[in-house]
């Protein structure tokens, strides 16, 4: 079982949600990591949760990307460690250069909180093994800056190398290039996505569509 740690930046607000989802699938609680920590010990999976790190002032994720722990997260990723960034976490990973591209203001210029449909681009990664390829599942989203953008070269490379994780199916809510909702690093160990599968892991909250992502990680090996 992977040992999971959740990075806490000031202003992050979905750390409890992620902890609930991880605990449900892993059967054990994740470790909480503090943004000023210079190193990460004994963690296999680093999760950067959603929220408004440092108020999202300047640019979403920009200041968090410069904090001490992100150097340790980069080193962890360079060693082949797992990293998951959700929403603000995805923005932080792009700002830190761990994933390509950037997240711009939603095309409609409004914060959006709604369910979206996600299509699983590949089901052979540590993040998606419990989904089927091309499976469409429901996930809540809640963001003002989820409009994925990258240069045409980068987008072509992501598609050519099969590094797109999820695409919006049906309505593209935020104007993302090529309807991209989530992407992988070339070694498939770092993944970022805008929607919140962690908010749909309990039938009481309206469904369990998001649970397979955490079940996949629970089944992954180091």
């Amino acid at each position: 079982m992977l040992r999971a740690g959740i990075v806490m930046f000031p202003g992050i607000n979905r750390e409890r949600d992620i902890a609930i989802a991880l605990t449900r699938s892993f059967g054990q609680k994740p470790v909480m990591l503090w943004h000023k920590d210079p190193s990460i010990e004994g963690i296999d999976l680093v999760v950067v949760p959603g929220g408004f790190s440092f108020g999202d002032y300047l640019r979403c994720g920009a200041m968090a990307a410069q904090s001490p722990i992100m150097r340790a997260v980069a080193a962890h990723a360079a060693r082949g460690g797992y990293v998951l960034g959700v929403c603000n976490g995805f923005q932080i990973l792009t700002e830190a250069g761990l994933l390509p591209g950037a997240l711009l203001r939603n095309a409609g210029l409004r914060f959006l909180s709604m369910d979206c449909q996600l299509k699983v681009a590949r089901a052979d990664t540590a993040f998606t093994s419990h989904y089927q390829q091309n499976e469409v599942f429901r996930a809540p989203l809640a963001h003002g800056d989820g409009n994925y953008t990258a240069s045409p070269d980068v987008l072509d490379r992501l598609e050519g190398e099969n590094l797109v994780a999820f695409r919006y199916e049906g309505e593209n809510p935020n104007g993302s290039a090529r309807a991209i909702a989530g992407i992988y690093s070339p070694n498939l160990r770092v993944m970022g996505l805008m929607p919140h599968p962690e908010n749909l892991v309990d039938p009481l909250m309206g469904g369990t569509d998001g649970k397979a992502l955490f079940d996949s990680l629970a089944a992954a090996s180091t």
């Binding site: 300047l58 640019r59 920009a62 200041m63 410069q66 792009t94 700002e95 390509p100 591209g101 950037a102 711009l104 953008t149 990258a150």
Partner: peptide
């Protein structure tokens, strides 16, 4: 270069 602007965009 380091913080104020994101050279990607």
């Amino acid at each position: 270069q380091k913080l104020l602007a994101n050279s990607v965009i």
